[in-house]
Amino acid sequence: MSDFDVGNRLKTIREESGLSQRELAQRAGVTNGLVSLIERNKTSPSITSLRKILEILGMTLAEFFDSGAPAEPGKFVFRHGELTEINPGRIYRSAGAEALKALSLKRWGKQGQTNLLLLYETYEPGADTGEEAYSHEGEEGGFVIEGEMLLTVGETTELLRAGDAYLFDSRLPHRFRNVAQTRCVIVSAATPPSF
Rank of each mutant, 00 (worst) to 15 (best):
146 E>K: 15
151 L>Y: 11
171 R>H: 12
180 A>G: 15
167 L>Y: 14
170 S>W: 05
158 E>D: 11
160 L>Y: 11
142 G>L: 10
168 F>R: 08
140 E>M: 01
149 M>G: 15
164 D>P: 07
152 T>C: 07
147 G>V: 05
177 R>L: 08
177 R>E: 03
177 R>K: 12
142 G>M: 12
156 T>E: 15
164 D>V: 02
160 L>I: 02
175 R>M: 04
162 A>K: 02
172 L>R: 08
144 V>I: 14
180 A>Y: 02
155 E>R: 13
158 E>R: 10
153 V>F: 10
158 E>H: 14
172 L>I: 01
145 I>C: 13
162 A>I: 01
173 P>Y: 11
168 F>L: 05
168 F>W: 10
169 D>G: 09
151 L>K: 08
175 R>I: 06
152 T>K: 15
177 R>W: 00
164 D>K: 00
174 H>T: 03
180 A>R: 04
181 Q>T: 09
176 F>C: 05
159 L>Y: 03
169 D>V: 04
180 A>S: 15
174 H>W: 05
146 E>S: 10
172 L>D: 09
156 T>K: 15
174 H>Q: 01
151 L>Q: 15
164 D>T: 07
163 G>S: 09
165 A>I: 06
143 F>Y: 14
172 L>T: 01
171 R>F: 00
165 A>L: 08
156 T>L: 09
171 R>L: 10
141 G>C: 08
164 D>C: 05
148 E>T: 01
166 Y>H: 15
169 D>I: 00
173 P>G: 05
148 E>N: 06
170 S>P: 12
144 V>Q: 03
158 E>V: 07
169 D>H: 03
147 G>T: 04
177 R>V: 03
173 P>S: 00
172 L>N: 14
163 G>F: 01
174 H>G: 00
173 P>Q: 08
158 E>A: 07
151 L>H: 12
144 V>D: 04
165 A>W: 00
167 L>V: 09
158 E>Q: 10
179 V>S: 11
156 T>N: 09
145 I>D: 10
161 R>L: 02
165 A>E: 06
155 E>V: 11
148 E>L: 07
180 A>W: 04
171 R>M: 00
171 R>A: 05
157 T>M: 07
165 A>N: 15
143 F>V: 11
144 V>R: 01
176 F>N: 00
148 E>P: 00
173 P>H: 07
166 Y>T: 03
161 R>H: 09
